[in-house]
Amino acid sequence: MLGGLLLVVAFGLRPRFARLSKVEERLPVLRRADAPRLFALLDEVAAGARTTGVRAVVIDADTNASVSVYGIRQHRVLHLGLGLWETLSPQERIALLGHEFGHYAHGDTRHSLIIGNAFRSLSTWRYALAHEPADSLMDHVVNLMTALPRLFVEGVVVLLDQLTLRGSQRAEYLADTTAARAAGTEAAAGLMDRLLVAEGVTGELRRESVAARTRIGGARREDPAEGLWERLAAHAASVPEHEYERLRQVAERRGHSVDSTHPPTHLRHRLLTGGEPCEALIVLDAARAAGVDAELAEARRVIAREVVRG
């Protein structure tokens, strides 16, 4: 019985590998044959970062972007949030891609095969040992029996978090330097400014969703998803320069949390602009940018419809 119990525990805590098939059920996923111009650009940026490209690109509405791996063979995948991508200039998009590929080039301890699975296993333990509302005597007994293991797991989580924290922050700074080399310092600093107003952009997406479902805002075209990304880009472009400066000053006065996995955006901006400026290694001209946009057109329509549906 004890051996069977241990086997069940081992099965529950086994290493889990992300599967792209689950993502494809709800989000557009592009592969090389679907978007050759986009993947050619990704390959070029990856080569500039001294790493290799990705096998797939997942498109969503987030005001963010990230890289990860999937499957036992750890294939690479880029998660591209249109909420951020659509607000960027062509050169700032190169900076964004350079930053993400910089994570592959410089490594990120928290997302490595061993440490990443360790965090996931500990999360499973935390869920299994979580304190439950005590509605009966048996609930009290179970909570009492799991108290020490729960404290032990929490302690290990905190320890592992602190041991990898500085590495995670360092990875962000190194990724920023890769972004500056790929797109130039000016574009990389511009990307930092866009990240400062990411919450406002997210709020604008929510407003568009609410307006589409409640018909707020007067007469509007029959399809509220039409022109969504253009309106979002116009909203981001309307933010004046002095607002960015105000946000940087507010962030500096507020201070930052030393246990955050990402350094404060204003410090990242200062590091980029305080050193020797870099010239762009890769320039995304208008014709090439238009070709990439054409390949993203269908995904843009799909995600726009999802946004307005809420």
Rank of each mutant, 00 (worst) to 15 (best):
A294G: 07
H262Y: 04
H235V: 13
F17L: 14
Q169H: 06
A212L: 05
G184L: 15
G98M: 11
G227A: 00
E172T: 02
M1W: 15
T273W: 06
L296Q: 11
P263K: 05
Q162G: 10
R76L: 00
V77H: 05
L122E: 06
P15V: 07
R207T: 00
E100A: 04
A171L: 00
T87M: 02
T185K: 04
A280E: 06
S260I: 01
P263R: 02
L20V: 04
E208V: 02
A237S: 09
G83Y: 04
R26F: 14
R14A: 14
R19M: 14
V239L: 09
T164N: 05
Q162V: 08
H262P: 03
T178H: 13
V197K: 06
G184I: 12
R50N: 12
L13T: 01
L272Y: 00
E279G: 13
A61H: 13
T261S: 00
G310I: 01
L284I: 02
R166L: 01
T87C: 10
D139W: 07
G310C: 03
E230M: 13
D293R: 06
A49V: 11
P15M: 13
E241S: 15
I282C: 03
G116S: 07
F152M: 13
A128F: 02
G4N: 09
L228G: 05
V308L: 05
L88T: 04
R55K: 13
A46C: 11
R50C: 09
R309C: 11
D223E: 09
V67E: 11
A10Y: 04
E243K: 09
F39T: 01
A219H: 10
D108H: 13
I94C: 01
E298D: 10
E276M: 13
I94H: 11
A280V: 11
A134R: 12
E295P: 06
A237R: 15
R270D: 14
L296R: 00
P149V: 02
E295H: 07
T178L: 07
P277M: 01
M138L: 12
S66P: 12
R150S: 00
S21D: 15
H99R: 12
G12H: 10
T146D: 09
R206S: 12
F152R: 15
V9A: 10
R19F: 07
R32M: 04
R301C: 03
L191K: 03
A47T: 13
T202L: 11
E222L: 11
A105V: 08
P264W: 03
